[in-house]
């Protein structure tokens, strides 16, 4: 090392009592040798042990930070994708349910319409038969009304007059009253 070569040029004289200590050449040789030893040791320890270790620590930390940041970004991306997928599924489900509801509603409506129509026509039919029945009954009733009136009138007349009534006069009178 360059530090030691100046050591030989200095006179290894006796201690100079009067000399200003930093300029006392008597101490130069020992100072320089110990400086060379300690500084050389410091240099090699720093170079071989300390600095690679600190570099390793900083490297590891830098890698860790970069890795964690990368993982965080990736996770955020995944979360965004999951959110998008969820939104999509939700929208699809909504659309599906709406379509299903609509379909069901129309199906139910057509079924009910059909049922209602069938029921209505059945009822109409029954109504019609009932009406015809009523009309028949009424007609037959009305037909027998004359006979009942005849009989009632002849009985009344017989009771009042005490002799059998004139059936033709009664029939004429009833026909007159009927109208």
């Amino acid at each position: 090392m360059a530090t030691t070569e100046t050591a030989g040029t200095e006179a290894p004289g006796a201690p100079h009592e009067a000399a200003f200590p930093p300029f006392d050449p008597g101490t130069f040789s020992s100072t320089l040798v110990w400086l060379a030893l300690t500084f050389g040791a410091l240099y090699f320890i720093m170079k071989r042990v300390a600095l690679p270790r600190v570099e390793g620590i900083l490297q590891t930390r830098g890698d860790k930070i970069r890795g964690d940041l990368g993982a965080a970004f990736k996770m955020r991306e995944e979360a965004n994708q999951a959110a998008a997928a969820y939104e999509k599924t939700l929208a699809e489900a909504k659309a599906g349910s709406q379509a299903l509801a609509q379909e069901t509603r129309t199906r139910v409506k057509t079924e009910q319409d059909a049922k209602r129509k069938a029921l209505e026509s059945e009822l109409n039919e029954k109504l019609m038969t009932a009406e015809t029945l009523i009309a028949d009954k009424k007609a037959s009733a009305m037909a027998s009304v004359g006979q009942i009136a005849n009989e009632a009138a002849s009985a009344i007349v017989q009771h009042i007059t005490g002799k059998p009534a004139d059936m033709t006069a009664i029939a004429a009178a009833i026909a007159a009253a009927k109208v």
Partner: peptide, 29 residues
Amino acid sequence: GGLDLSFTNSSLFMVIVLGLACALMILGT
């Protein structure tokens, strides 16, 4: 060989400096 290489107070403090620097950089890490 006629050279004074005594371990002096100056040398002692060089060794102390060496020790402190190594302590910081090696024990510290």
